[in-house]
Simulated assay, not measured.
Amino acid sequence: MTHERAGWLVVALDLDGATDKTGLLDRCARALDLPGWFGRNRDALADSLADHTVRPEGAVERGLPIVVDGRLPCATARPAE
């Protein structure tokens, strides 16, 4: 989900309740509105973030900060990941 703030498109990424890699990647896919071919792995996430064609319209020109909320449970549940 994107919001507009100070001319930027801002993505709110809520990780509350996500405690593993699958949960994290599912939340990223929803928040960033990633395409169906998104492979649900870190390489696919990096590729999607680097590919300007999958970003929301105007994000390349205006910027696309990602605000992460609720990351602590996910980060502490699997610190090695």
Rank of each mutant, 00 (worst) to 15 (best):
L9Q: 05
L24A: 07
D26Q: 15
R40A: 08
E4I: 08
P56K: 04
L24T: 08
L64V: 10
T53L: 12
D69P: 07
T22N: 13
D20V: 01
P79Q: 00
G17A: 02
D33G: 10
K21E: 15
C74V: 06
A44Q: 01
V11A: 15
R5C: 13
V54A: 10
A18F: 04
D51M: 03
C28D: 01
C28Q: 01
D14K: 06
G58S: 06
A75L: 11
R30N: 14
P73N: 03
A75I: 12
P35A: 03
R42N: 10
H52K: 06
C74T: 04
E4F: 01
D26W: 03
E4G: 08
A77L: 04
L32I: 03
V11G: 12
G58D: 00
P73W: 11
V68R: 06
D26N: 09
D43L: 15
A18H: 07
G36W: 11
A18Q: 13
R27T: 01
K21S: 15
D69N: 14
L34A: 03
V67A: 10
R40Y: 12
L49W: 07
V67D: 07
A46G: 02
L72M: 12
E57I: 15
G7M: 07
A12N: 11
L15F: 08
G39T: 00
A75R: 10
L24K: 05
H3S: 12
T53G: 12
T2H: 12
